[in-house]
Design a protein around this nucleic acid. Structure first.
Lengths: 168, 168
DNA sequence: ACATATTTTCAATAAATTTTGAAAGTTCGG
DNA sequence: CCGAACTTTCAAAATTTATTGAAAATATGT
């Protein structure tokens, strides 16, 4: 397979992959393009290579910056802004975990705390089923929260090295 | 908060949550409803409680069954089918992990294997950037695959108990 | 301050996804 | 085999989400 095809394939698959994770196709594709490109790219480079409009490109680059996955790069003597993605995949994964934890897991845990305090007699089968489910999710969610915190702090070697043994 | 409100809140939040994970709102809501309901429900019960059409309900129940999260229950002397969700959240999580691993992670690893073998001179900066990114993702992906396999085999006590210590 | 290059916004449009509901299909007791 | 109860399918409609592109805003060099 030629480089150009391989790149196309990667970008398109990364985009499809993204849609299964609540990320829009374009954002995932821009990320993919920046991941596999050695040098920083301008907005126009991205527009051209992915065949997308200026507005769309701009919005999605900004979103990637919000996620902490892409940064602006200022090249000396250039007026245009360049963009570059973090290439260390372990850092990328940790960053995504960190953001999703903050945006999704933490608010969910907050809600579960509230819902657990529902009024009513726990001898009522319906109240019991509700409270049991909510408590169960909360318990596991809290544990996941801690585990992810540890992961965010960890070095890649820890994940690739030590964890293996633990899991046998 | 009254049980009825709390249920509504839970169902609606679970649905919103689902959309961030590539799961459609209705499917997540049906799952939520079945999770917090003590007894199995019929298709009509679900339609009524969530205010959705027969077709929509039917399609999404079947999808939940495909995911292994809901099962048909036959009550003796009843013509109608009843549906019930797995209530053990640890089992639910493992089942979801198992399915997503099979549907997403494994195909992605297969693709990366192919892309890693791209033609071209690795001294070429562009070829190098591509191969390095692909290899990096593959390495981490393979590790994640192993880790998730271990998790799928594990008991909840392992996750809640032992892991804590490891993570300090 | 001006002219020009560059970036950002956002209303309109397009595309993708979800939902509906009626019709077709299936199952089951008698 | 019939008819009623129940389930499934799927084309059309509704809704949601993504994309465009031109206009407005901002930044830069002289």
């Amino acid at each position: 397979m030629k480089l150009i095809e391989a790149k196309q394939q990667f970008i398109s698959s990364w985009g499809a992959f993204g849609t299964h994770w609540g990320i829009n196709r374009t954002m995932a594709q821009i990320h993919a393009l920046l991941l596999i490109t050695a040098d920083p790219l301008t907005q126009d480079d991205i527009m051209e290579q992915l065949n997308i409009s200026r507005g769309n490109t701009n919005m999605n680059i900004r979103e990637l910056i919000n996620w902490g996955l892409v940064e602006r790069v200022l090249l000396t003597g250039e007026r245009k802004e360049y963009f570059s993605a973090e290439k260390d995949i372990w850092k990328v994964v940790k960053q995504i975990v960190k953001e999703r934890k903050k945006r999704e897991l933490e608010p969910m845990l907050k809600l579960l705390d509230q819902l657990e305090g529902v009024e009513g007699d726990k001898r009522d089968k319906n109240v019991k089923a509700f409270v049991d489910t909510v408590s169960g999710i909360k318990k596991l969610g809290k544990q996941a929260d801690k585990t992810l915190d540890a992961m965010i702090r960890a070095e890649e070697s820890w994940f690739v090295g030590n964890l293996v043994k633990i899991f046998k």
